[in-house]
Amino acid sequence: MGLRGKTLAARLRRAGRMLPKRLRAEGQYLVEAERKLAHPRLATQVDAARVEKAFGALEEHLKSIDAADRRRSRLIHWLAGLVFNLLILGALVLIVLRWQGVI
């Protein structure tokens, strides 16, 4: 997704709503598991199967994202907004010219 951040928690924060709600929850579980695994006594509370499931779900979703398609889509939306604004500007110019009696 092109997100920057030193830790998984920072990257998930930046991802925000770009991830589906279920995957955000899986990501939060991974962050909690990472925090618990850093402590020897809390490491026993981490469910390895759940960690694998969460990691697999996030990995599958991220592999399905086509970066080129996202860039192309962003460019098309930007151009569409620009064309729409130019149409509104042209209409306003015509209205003002008509009002002034030039046309």
Rank of each mutant, 00 (worst) to 15 (best):
L3Q: 15
L87E: 07
I103H: 03
A33F: 00
Q28W: 11
R50Y: 00
L62I: 06
E26T: 05
G2D: 15
A48N: 09
R13H: 12
R41L: 14
A68Y: 11
H77G: 11
R22W: 13
A68I: 07
R72V: 13
A49H: 03
V93L: 10
G81I: 06
D66Q: 02
L86H: 04
R35N: 10
V93G: 03
Q100H: 00
E52G: 08
G101F: 00
G16S: 13
R35D: 13
L79P: 02
A15M: 09
L75G: 07
L97R: 00
R98F: 00
Q28C: 09
V31G: 06
L42I: 04
V46L: 01
V96R: 01
R22A: 14
R41I: 10
H61V: 05
G56F: 02
Q45P: 08
E59F: 03
L37R: 07
V31Y: 04
K53Q: 11
T7S: 12
R72S: 11
L62W: 04
I95V: 06
G90L: 13
R35S: 09
E34W: 02
R13V: 11
A54L: 01
M1F: 13
L12Q: 10
A15W: 09
A25W: 10
R74Q: 11
V51K: 00
I95P: 01
H39M: 09
R17C: 12
L86V: 12
Q100Y: 00
N85G: 13
L94Q: 06
A38L: 08
E26M: 06
L89E: 01
G16A: 13
L62Q: 06
A80R: 08
Q28V: 07
S73L: 07
L19I: 09
V31W: 03
V96L: 01
L92F: 04
L94P: 02
M1W: 12
L79W: 12
F55D: 12
L12D: 09
R24N: 10
L92H: 02
F84E: 07
L37A: 04
A15S: 09
A49L: 05
E34F: 01
L62N: 05
G2A: 13
E26Y: 08
L37E: 08
G2K: 14
W99F: 02
L3V: 14
R98S: 03
L30T: 04
A43R: 03
R14I: 15
L82Y: 10
M18T: 15
L30F: 00
G16E: 12
R17Q: 14
M1Q: 11
K21F: 15
A10M: 11
G5V: 06
V51R: 01
K36E: 11
L23N: 07
H61T: 06
G90N: 08
L42Y: 07
R70D: 14
K53Y: 07
I103W: 04
D66Y: 01
M18R: 14
